[in-house]
């Protein structure tokens, strides 16, 4: 288990401050944040590669804040892999084993295990410069895992890859974590990557952890406007909450009334995920408490899905499939209805 207590790190322009985290053994933990939030520095501080100003880092009940990187049992994989260019793939993987006083036979066995695990046996004699991005990432993972670290630190490991390789490697990372059972701390700015891989997510902004929770909690219950934006909520509104009928809360958003379930009153923010909104040509008769009419303002294709912006006149973005777009025959300027449940409205 990794425990971080009141960690403070000087980043020059700003501080990584008051970082408190508990990461369970075997957990796949994601640190999510925009570029420049201090994610990599936090990872390097954990590994002992970046000096901390104050605070404590504990690993398996032992304080490791004062230990040199080689004594912490943490392997790191960087975005651009940082493979040793003067060594072959095999020697890259064996690099750390040479400091473990293993006999030559054991080193060879361990390298064979790792290349088998990552399915890169055909690459062992190659020079890193001849490998593709995905292959390099697998070699970097094999090298980091070879020394059997307590924690595997991944610094945006998928960011530099093309979408297809990225998706493939995402699946392999999930499987690898399942098989090796190592604790993983994975840094990324990609929310979808966080949702796909993480058991839990910590959202980092300007040097501070602003929310920790399961991907679903962060997705559906963002605690701030920043997290809502980052979790791709798209519909983030401000309004005034007051008592409504049937125990619901009525939130007045620019003259439009939205029903929600919350104890909060007065000035509030709302977030509503695009996939939680139904769009129709006629009013829907359903249990959903919010049904509003508006006009299609924009239709934005995003690969297999379509974002439709409806002006009420406040703008709501809805997510539909291509098939739905064709079935509804939506066009700009067309009058439509948007329907969503009171429970889908997150108030904060």
């Amino acid at each position: 288990m990794i425990k971080i207590r009141a960690l403070k790190v000087n980043l020059g322009d700003f501080w990584l401050e008051d970082i408190n985290l508990d990461i369970e053994e075997g957990e796949y933990f994601i640190i999510l944040g925009p570029t420049g939030a201090g994610k990599t520095v936090l990872l390097e501080a954990l590994a002992g590669l970046y000096p901390i100003s104050q605070g404590e880092i504990w690993s398996d009940g032992r304080e490791i804040s004062h230990l040199y990187p080689e004594k912490r049992g943490m392997g790191i994989v960087y975005q651009d892999q940082a493979l040793f260019p003067h060594l072959s793939v095999k020697d890259n993987i064996a690099f750390g084993l040479k400091f473990m006083s293993y006999p030559r036979e054991k080193v060879r066995e361990r390298v064979d295990d790792m290349v088998g695990l990552l399915k890169i046996s055909h690459l062992v004699e190659r020079n890193p410069s001849t490998l593709s991005g995905g292959e390099r990432q697998k070699v970097a993972l094999a090298r980091a895992l070879a020394t059997d670290p307590r924690v595997l630190l991944l610094d945006e490991p998928l960011s530099a890859l093309d979408p297809e390789t990225k998706e493939g490697l995402q699946g392999e990372l999930r499987e690898l974590h399942h098989r090796v059972k190592v604790t993983v701390i994975h840094v990324t700015h990609d929310f979808e990557e966080a949702v796909a891989l993480g058991n839990r997510v910590a959202v980092l902004n300007e040097g501070q952890i602003v929310q920790v929770g399961t991907p679903d909690e962060v997705l559906r219950r963002p605690k701030s406007e920043f997290v809502a934006h980052f979790a791709l909520s798209r519909n983030i509104l401000s309004g005034r909450a007051g008592d409504g009928e049937d125990g619901y809360t009525m939130v007045d958003v620019g003259g439009i009334e939205i029903r929600a379930i919350t104890e909060l009153r007065d000035e509030v923010h709302l977030s509503l995920r695009p996939e939680d909104i139904l769009i129709s040509r006629q009013p829907l008769h359903s249990s959903a408490r919010n049904s509003l009419s508006g006009v299609v303002a924009d239709i934005i294709p995003r690969g297999a899905v379509i974002y439709v912006t409806v002006s009420l006149p406040l703008e709501l973005t809805c997510l539909i499939t291509r098939q739905s777009l064709e079935d509804l025959e939506l066009r700009r300027g067309m009058k439509v209805w948007v329907t969503f449940k009171a429970g889908a409205v997150h108030v904060f």
Binding site: E44, A47, G48, L49, Y68, P69, E70, R72, M74, G75, I76, Y78, D80, A82, F84, F95, G96, F99, M100, R143, A144, T147, P149, L153
Partner: peptide, 11 residues
């Protein structure tokens, strides 16, 4: 980062 990786690998 090559040096940093080497340190985490036990060097």
């Amino acid at each position: 980062r090559l040096e940093k990786v080497a340190r985490t690998l036990g060097a």
